[in-house]
Nucleic acid binder design. Sequence first.
DNA 1: AACAACGGCAACCGCCTATAA
DNA 2: ATTATAGGCGGTTGCCGTTGT
Length: 334
Amino acid sequence: MEDVLMKKLGSEFMGVRKGAWTPEEDLLLKKCVEKHGEGRWHLVPTRAGVRSCSSFCVLLYVTCVVWANVRCVSASLQCLRRCRKSCRLRWLNYLKPNIKKGAFQEDEVDLIIRLHRLLGNRWSLIAGRIPGRTANDIKNFWNSCLGKKVSPNLQGVVDNKETAGSTAMEPLKQSSHTAGLKETVPTVAPSYSVIKPKPRIPSKSISFPILSKNIGTHREARREPSITHDGPDKEEDPLSWLRNLLGVEEEEDGKQKEVNEGRGQENLNSVPSNSQEGNVELLVAGCCREEEGSEEGQQWWEDMFLDEELMLGDLLGPEAGSNQSPNWVDGILE
DNA sequence: AACAACGGCAACCGCCTATAA
DNA sequence: ATTATAGGCGGTTGCCGTTGT
């Protein structure tokens, strides 16, 4: 009975609030998610709001809504009048505990540029590779800052592969040193090729070594179920499985020798398409892993950046993930 | 000091896909 | 097989603080 009423309240009687979130709303949402966990966002407004009140409050609320035309009632009655999407977005972009705020670090900027070159505007995928950063953050950062500065330079990279440097921002070294980034206003839309791997039919026996969550819940992974290889044995080291995965890909491209000999300086632009696709697979898997936000996920990150330095370095270039700040990056972050 | 322009950020919107009924 | 619903994503908008004139 009460559930039905809640549903009615949520869908019909409750006016859905918009605009900036108040601290009270944040608190309600946070408490709710901490109690019930993420997901089932359609239930969050009722869980965090009216449900916490007594039935009397519910009736009182309805009365108030009718008489007071929705406004200014929720605060006093502790009701969260937000739609599911708004709740999800607020949690993911702001309230989630491990979200990193503040300015982007040099290595993050470099990584974003590389990943954007690789993946295009698939911000959720990119965010999955940047610990603590949300897709919205990265998207905003790109649109307001990086995109304007990087695009024209990347144009030059595509046009002249000879100038393709060892880092994603190599082109910026030249321009920022000479003219300054703020002067490099883009006049031509970027035309660098972005990897959009075609879907493959995933094996039904596929299982990821480290994914407790079904990869199919990730939109990008669903759209591009690119991993067709059989999953690893459960006792097998997941990283060795990834190595094998990439190794097979490389061998198929006839690039295995190059990999073994250390192709660290090779720019992504010059990576063969099939190999790039393999890289995307790795990224997708990494994303899904990262989404869990668990300690295991954090450990995996460390594995990726430490143990698999060579592999990621091959993917992203020698300076990716490096703590050393290239001088030219300072220009970007000014 | 006042106003306009700009930039950064939070939030909304529409669409797509998966899944349950 | 069809429809409704929820989750998720990228694009876009609007607010607000900062900077320039």
